[in-house]
């Protein structure tokens, strides 16, 4: 492997670890809004991973649908169900 590839490999693995962290945080945090925002970050990391894995189409789709629309939907839901503070 050439140098550039090694770097990308390392970055990929680090992103994977990050992905796990964000997922765990999104699941185990008490605050729903935090959870949703973490989910957005989760999607963002996923997009980067897709790009690294040479899948631009999927990355774009994930960006607009996974990160964009779904996040909006979640936010609307949380707004409509006001008692998200107390679990």
């Amino acid at each position: 492997m050439t140098g550039g590839k090694v770097v990308i490999y390392v970055i990929l693995n680090m992103l994977m670890i990050f992905l796990l962290f964000t997922a765990f945080f999104a699941v185990f945090t008490k605050n729903l809004l935090n959870s949703i925002i973490t989910l957005a970050i989760f999607s963002a990391i996923l997009i980067v991973i897709f790009v690294i894995l040479q899948a631009p189409d999927a990355a774009l789709a994930e960006a607009v649908i996974g990160a964009g629309l779904t996040l909006t939907f979640f936010v609307i839901t949380i707004n409509k169900t006001k008692d998200w503070q107390n679990e």
């Binding site: 997922a23 999104a26 699941v27 729903l32 959870s35 949703i36 989910l39 989760f42 999607s43 996923l46 991973i49 897709f50 894995l53 899948a55 999927a58 994930e62 996974g66 779904t70 979640f74 839901t77 949380i78 169900t81 998200w84 679990e87």
Partner: peptide, 21 residues
């Protein structure tokens, strides 16, 4: 929490997409 359940669904979906990629 219902919303958390949906978050879980989202995560599973993402993991499967990641698997595909």
């Amino acid at each position: 929490n219902l919303i958390k359940i949906v978050v879980g669904v989202n995560i599973v979906e993402s993991s499967l997409i990641l698997l595909l990629i």
